[in-house]
């Protein structure tokens, strides 16, 4: 099975490819095609609640009828309704701003860990990952506790004299940003740490020897060299944040939603499966480029180390 003996590929090797490949095609790729198809269908009150239903038994004529009834009406609805559009743009905006916030907060942490003594590094990196393993929902719930009107955050702020009266944190964009930064911080810190840790420190020494102040050395040496980690972290955070549901649902206000909530409501509340599918397709479109980039980075790492 090794690289230099590809001709030895046997039935066993073939099975090794086919089993996971079939699983992913059947349960990841095919479902997407169904979403795509459904987004072009019409809503009806029936089970399943959409037409046309694909009918193989109808043969060629059935296929032709099937394609004839597909329509872009759902997309037309989405783009003509300013509410959908506003939600959509808002999601992309929240994803962009929180990715920038994550970079600002995550970079110093990753840098600090990468410059820590070698023995401490793996422990510190592990400590950053650990909260990620405790349930997502629990971490958001923890913040609901803290951000209550009489919660700990307000109590501390009042005790310190920073604010006089309790601040309404919950049901606001601030709460959404706190929740997102809290939940996604490990995804930002780890790729940054991986890149900064590998950086050649003698470059910084050289810069310092030549009289370059530390901030300039950071700007001219460290940051450009860690750009790959910056992009990796940003991609890893931006994509799932754009489609986030739990955080805006539990921490955000009800008057302004994110696109993930729209999809959820169309599906669970309005029971409009075709529109929910159209929302999914529209949400996926701007994410395709970063998703493909993410795959490209993963593959490059793989090829490099093989």
């Amino acid at each position: 099975m090794s690289e230099n003996a590809p001709q030895r590929r046997s039935l066993g090797a073939w099975l090794v490819v086919v089993i996971p490949a079939l699983w992913l095609v059947a349960l990841f790729l095919v479902p997407f095609l169904i979403v795509l198809k459904l987004s072009l269908s019409e809503t009806v009150i029936a089970q399943p609640p959409y037409v046309p239903v694909f009918d193989f038994s109808a043969g060629w004529q059935g296929m032709k009828d099937f394609f004839a009834t597909l329509s872009f009406a759902n997309y037309a609805t989405l783009f003509s309704d300013t509410l959908y559009l506003a939600t959509y743009l808002r999601s992309l905006q929240i994803a962009t701003v929180s990715t920038l916030l994550l970079l600002l907060i995550g970079y110093p942490i990753a840098y600090g860990i990468a410059r820590a003594p070698h023995r401490a590094q793996s422990i510190l990196a592990m400590m950053v990952v650990l909260p990620f393993l405790t349930a997502f929902l629990i971490r958001i719930y923890a913040w609901i506790n803290l951000l209550q009107p009489e919660g700990l955050v307000n109590n501390v702020l009042i005790a310190l004299g920073i604010v006089r009266a309790p601040v309404e944190w919950l049901a606001s964009d601030t709460a959404i940003y706190i929740g997102i930064v809290y939940s996604y911080l490990p995804f930002m810190v780890l790729p940054l740490y991986a890149v900064i840790e590998k950086m050649d420190e003698t470059l910084l020494e050289a810069a310092a020897d030549l009289g370059c102040p530390w901030w300039k050395a950071f700007w001219l040496v460290t940051l450009p060299l860690s750009l790959r980690g910056v992009v990796a972290g940003a991609v890893l955070c931006f994509i799932p944040i754009a489609g986030e549901f739990v955080i805006p649902d539990l921490l955000g206000g009800s008057e302004s939603m994110m696109i993930g909530q729209t999809l959820w409501n169309e599906f669970f509340v309005n029971r409009d499966w075709p529109v929910a599918s159209a929302v999914a397709v529209v949400l996926l479109c701007p994410l395709l480029a970063p998703i493909l980039y993410h795959q490209h980075v993963q593959m490059r790492e793989l090829e490099k180390r093989r």
Binding site: P20, A21, L24, V25, F28, L29, V35, V235, L236, I239, P240, A242, G243, E244, F245, G260, L263, W264, A280, L283, L284, L287, P290, I291, H294, Q295, Q298, M299
Partner: peptide, 12 residues
């Protein structure tokens, strides 16, 4: 197919 589910929004 292997790497996309890692980042794909869960609602989708």
């Amino acid at each position: 197919l292997v790497y996309a589910p890692l980042v794909m929004p869960e609602v989708i």
